[in-house]
Amino acid sequence: MRIPAGTSDLATIDAVPANAGGSTGDGEESLRLLSLVERTLTARLEEALRGVGSSLDQWRILRLLAERGGAPMNVVADHVLLLAPKLSKLVDRMVSANLVLRRRDVEDRRRVLIVVSARGRRALAEWDEVTADVRGQFRDLLGADAEQFEALLRRLQDGLDPAAVEALEQPAG
């Protein structure tokens, strides 16, 4: 440790936080950094989407529905991390804007699926385009480690809440 000029050894040691080395050993710094990265990426994505009249939640909903071919509300809620009342209002607005449609599930007539409309697919293409720079920066920063990072995040999520991950990964049916 380098001691600043004019400072005693004890004063320097007392002034240095216990975790000055970067990690407390219990993952506290990792959790803080993970939160900081999530907030930064979220803010950048929201800014890009706001410029084209969208929100991060709308983009995430359309992205999920396009990938899955549709999904029930509970799966959408889990994916976009919204409570049912807020999601219902957002989906109602998206239905009114003709971005998504509600369809009865052919396998379970009691269940309603949310699917992307043709207009929603066009909007999603535009929204993907405006978020491409942010997503590209993320991939560029991680480089060859991007896949490993995603695998580690999935492993962490699986360990924290395996039921939620299973629900998200079930094919639309």
Rank of each mutant, 00 (worst) to 15 (best):
L41I: 07
L41W: 06
L41T: 01
L41D: 02
T42G: 05
T42W: 08
T42Q: 09
A43G: 07
A43K: 06
A43Q: 12
R44D: 09
R44Y: 04
R44W: 03
L45G: 00
L45Y: 00
L45H: 06
E46S: 12
E46Q: 08
E46R: 07
E47T: 09
E47F: 12
A48E: 03
A48N: 04
A48M: 07
L49H: 00
L49A: 01
L49R: 00
L49W: 00
R50A: 08
R50C: 07
G51R: 14
G51L: 07
G51S: 14
G51P: 10
V52S: 15
G53N: 11
G53R: 07
G53E: 10
G53H: 12
S54F: 10
S54C: 14
S55D: 01
S55W: 13
S55I: 06
L56M: 14
L56K: 13
D57W: 11
D57A: 15
Q58Y: 08
Q58K: 10
Q58W: 03
W59Y: 15
R60S: 05
R60I: 02
I61H: 05
I61Y: 02
I61Q: 01
L62S: 08
L62V: 01
R63T: 13
R63S: 12
R63Q: 09
L64G: 06
L64Y: 04
L64T: 02
L64K: 12
L65F: 11
L65P: 00
A66T: 08
A66C: 10
E67M: 13
E67H: 13
E67Q: 15
R68N: 11
R68A: 07
G69C: 05
G69T: 15
G69I: 15
G70F: 02
G70E: 06
G70V: 07
G70I: 06
G70M: 04
G70R: 03
G70H: 01
A71L: 08
P72C: 09
P72Q: 05
M73R: 10
M73S: 11
N74D: 15
V75R: 06
V76Y: 00
V76R: 00
A77D: 03
A77W: 02
D78N: 13
D78S: 14
D78V: 12
H79G: 06
H79T: 04
H79V: 00
H79D: 10
V80A: 03
V80N: 02
L81V: 13
L81F: 11
L81T: 14
L82Y: 09
L82I: 07
L82V: 08
L83C: 06
L83W: 11
L83Q: 14
L83T: 12
A84C: 05
A84D: 15
A84I: 14
A84L: 10
A84K: 14
A84T: 15
P85G: 05
P85N: 06
K86V: 08
K86A: 13
K86I: 10
K86Y: 11
L87T: 06
L87V: 10
L87W: 04
L87A: 05
S88K: 12
S88L: 10
S88C: 04
